[in-house]
Design a protein around this nucleic acid. Structure first.
Lengths: 113, 113
DNA sequence: GCTGTATATAACTTACAACTGATATAAAAT
DNA sequence: ATTTTATATCAGTTGTAAGTTATATACAGC
């Protein structure tokens, strides 16, 4: 599963938001998500597993509890993709601008009727 | 459909990459995506529609062709979410660090047996 | 006015991700 | 030891997004 796909799900995104403020036990996540989205404990647990396996979350047992935390590195992939592509289109837009500034647009496009 | 959900699909992400280099006709997109993913013209057309309706792409008719281009603003939502949340967890990690630096960790956590 | 391209839409099918309820596992509390 | 609490896993169901084929629309060239 791709990083964007992981963050594509609203429940997972909300879980990430919760973990973003610091390590919290699965139970706390379940409670918030459960009430906000009206889904069951197993459902939340499954999404935590997805986040874990995708490298977005780390778990640490503390007695019977499981403390979940964000793993920032997982977001690098997303950042990289966005940066790379934004660069591309800002470049192509800039190129278009200079093209227009040079007044080439008329010739290429058919110009005035 | 949320911005992350839009970018969650690999076909759509690839289409965005293609549009990133500048305006291109639907046909060109269809050709590349078709061969790369082995999907039909209607399938590509449908994904272009999704990108359009989600505000990620703009269309401009040129005769029988439809020229597609990126709409950079659509990515603001993604950027904003990432920025906001990264800020949160870097803060909480920094807080943890200072906490440890202060040597508080032992008391709070049960410490040595 | 036809014929051929280019693209979009319609109707239908299908794979799968996201659930549910039931149950297993393991630690905590009694 | 038993019961309770915390979390994970299993088996099964289901909604929907992404695909397919067939067809409509609209422009381009003859």
């Amino acid at each position: 599963m791709n990083a964007f796909e992981i963050l594509g799900d609203p429940v997972r995104r909300r879980i990430v938001e919760l973990l973003a403020d610091g390590e919290i036990p699965a139970g706390a996540v379940t409670e918030v998500i459960g009430t906000e989205f009206g889904i069951s404990q197993p459902a939340v647990s499954a999404q935590l597993r997805v986040l874990r396996e995708a490298g977005f979350a780390a778990v640490r047992p503390q007695g019977a509890r499981r403390l979940y935390a964000i793993r920032p590195d997982a977001f690098d992939e997303v950042d990289a993709w966005l940066t790379t592509n934004r660069r591309r289109w800002t470049q192509s837009l800039d190129a278009l601008d200079t093209e227009i500034a040079r007044g080439r647009s008329r010739r290429e496009q058919g110009g005035k009727p």
